[in-house]
Write a protein that binds this DNA or RNA. Structure first.
Length: 335
DNA sequence: AACGAATCCAACCGCCGGTTC
DNA sequence: GGAACCGGCGGTTGGATTCGT
């Protein structure tokens, strides 16, 4: 049996709100509150609107103390940092920015901040390729890479790209207590890695691999429940302080200086590791060009997932880890 | 000035989890 | 216990606006 619609869609108005509708809704809520029932609200007021639409209008536009546009650099940093840490949980991010709505932040990220952030890295790569080859940067970045990108969800890709710009000292594979029980997906990864190892020249082991296939598979797996719970438990305690967002220490480990560099073109001279990584920044550079370093994967993968996993249900975990598995296997030509 | 492309953002959609009955 | 209901959320859409040629 299907779910009953929240309203009679044939008799509700859709589209932009008129000033009269806004005034009615605002006046009623300010005087009587929502009454704990958005669905019944439009009928009480005499609005031909869906209750959900009323709720959205109130929350995103009419309620007091809202700010629109004009995001500060500090807010940019917070949004960026939180996005990298917890993903597209806009309501959580909005909770750290007084006066901002999740919708506003989501739009701001999608239209401006994302481009600002990822554009930097992309340009760095393009410029580097251009300098090396003398080619037009647009041509230097082959179509094959674009095919990889098309196979990824934007969220997974963005966050992976951002994570790749930094070295994270947290070593997942050095902490067996965090290793989850293997599931079929992980077994698949193991098999792929074993195949990869077997097909590689035994005398030419992949340089720099410091982990076993089992360990790599663990890293490519869904993040362990332990890490998820750990983060979930720590999440609320992180978001405390004089202002709402003071005290946040994102799981990604971005420092203020690093974020300033990414967002505001500040100097990276004082960031040897960062500047090195930025200069080489591209999602699949290491995969495509060297196949010799899995170090970034272990840390970044684990970190990206652990940070966002606290809201995953089991199906989502599988899907997201599958996405990252795609990153992994596509990059190494396993598929 | 005119047109198409790109961008912005308000609003909608559908899913999920919690609550109520 | 489970169906119905509701609020909340993130993803997506499409109209309006701005930009580039």
């Amino acid at each position: 049996m299907g779910r009953a619609p929240c309203c009679d869609k044939a008799n509700v108005k859709k589209g932009p709100w008129s000033p009269e509708e806004d005034a009615k809704l605002k006046a009623y809520i300010e005087e009587y509150g929502t009454g704990g029932n958005w669905i019944a609200l439009p009928q009480k007021i005499g609005l031909k609107r869906c209750g959900k639409s009323c709720r959205l209008r109130w929350l995103n536009y009419l309620r007091p103390n809202l700010r629109h546009g004009g995001f500060s650099e500090e807010e940019d940093n917070i949004i960026c940092s939180l996005y990298i840490s917890i993903g597209s949980r806009w309501s959580v991010i909005a909770a750290q920015l007084p006066g901002r709505t999740d919708n506003d932040i989501k739009n701001y990220w999608n239209t401006k901040l994302k481009k600002k952030l990822l554009g930097r890295g992309k340009n760095s790569r393009m410029n580097r390729l251009s300098a090396i080859s003398g080619q037009d940067p647009k041509d230097a970045n082959g179509g094959e890479e674009n095919n990889y990108l098309q196979n990824l969800s934007s969220s997974a890709l963005e966050r992976l790209q951002l994570h790749m710009q930094f070295q994270n000292p947290f070593s997942f594979y050095n902490n067996p207590a965090f290793w989850p029980k293997l599931n079929p997906f992980q077994d698949k990864t193991i098999q792929s890695l074993q195949f990869l190892n077997a097909s590689n020249n035994q005398n030419n082991p992949i340089q720099g691999i410091s982990i076993s296939p089992q360990q790599a598979a663990v890293e490519c797996s869904t993040i362990s429940n332990l890490k998820a719970e750990e983060h979930q438990n720590s999440e609320s305690s992180n978001f405390v302080g004089q202002s709402n967002y003071k005290g946040i220490e994102p799981v990604s480990g971005f420092t203020q200086t690093e974020l300033n560099y990414l967002l505001n073109n500040e100097s990276a001279d004082c960031l040897p590791t960062l500047s090195q990584n930025i200069a080489e920044f591209d999602c699949f550079k290491e995969m495509n060009e060297t196949k010799d370093n899995l170090g970034w994967w272990s840390n970044d993968f684990v970190d990206a997932n652990s940070a966002s996993s606290n809201s995953w249900d089991s199906a989502t975990k599988v899907n997201q880890s599958e996405e990252l598995y795609q990153v992994y296997t596509l990059g190494y030509g396993m598929q």
